[in-house]
Simulated assay, not measured.
Amino acid sequence: MTHTPPDQHSTPTPAELREQIEHTRHELGETVQALADKTDIKARAQRKAGQLKEQAAVKAGELKAQAAKANSQVQDKIPDPVKEKAAQAAGQARAAAAQVGRMWEEKAPEPLRQQAARSVQLAREHRTVLLLAAAGITFLWLAGRPRKD
């Protein structure tokens, strides 16, 4: 595009005018689009929500990796006899839980059973944390017991 210097008083040609008009239309279109983007709150909120969701997924992945690493480190530090006793205790706990469950189904009122079912579901969803806590408690309990020699 050729611009006429301000000190010359020449009239632009029709081609130059068309070029200026097209340039102005283009700039105006970009300005209108930018204003429309700024006023479209729903689209901005959706973009922001998408960004936050992506960040949360990344953070969750990082935390999951850290938890797996911590679990591995704890498992590596627990002596084999402790692991065996923990496995044995877990088996006994499962058997006792099954027996209590049967008794529970026979005698507990329905609203209480529903609340218990919700609690069990939460425990299942957070199983890893509960198992790590149980392993840590078992380890501390066994480590703190006086040894019989």
Rank of each mutant, 00 (worst) to 15 (best):
R47V: 05
L142R: 01
S119R: 13
L122P: 01
S119V: 09
D149T: 05
L35T: 09
A36C: 10
E84S: 05
D76R: 10
R18P: 00
M103R: 12
A90P: 09
E16V: 02
V32F: 08
A98F: 14
A95N: 06
A95H: 09
G101L: 01
A65D: 08
G29D: 15
H3D: 10
A15W: 00
T31P: 05
Q20T: 03
V129R: 11
Q51E: 15
A70M: 03
H9V: 11
E84Y: 01
A95D: 10
P12N: 02
Q55E: 15
R18D: 09
E105L: 03
Q88K: 12
D37M: 14
T11A: 15
L52P: 07
Q8W: 08
A117E: 13
E22L: 08
A15T: 03
L112K: 02
G91E: 14
E30K: 08
E125S: 13
H3I: 09
L122S: 12
G29Y: 07
G136D: 06
L131V: 11
H26F: 11
A117V: 04
A70T: 02
R124I: 07
K85E: 08
Q121W: 07
Q88N: 07
A98R: 14
L63A: 08
G50R: 14
Q88I: 07
T39N: 11
H9S: 12
A96W: 07
M103L: 14
A70D: 05
G101F: 00
A60D: 02
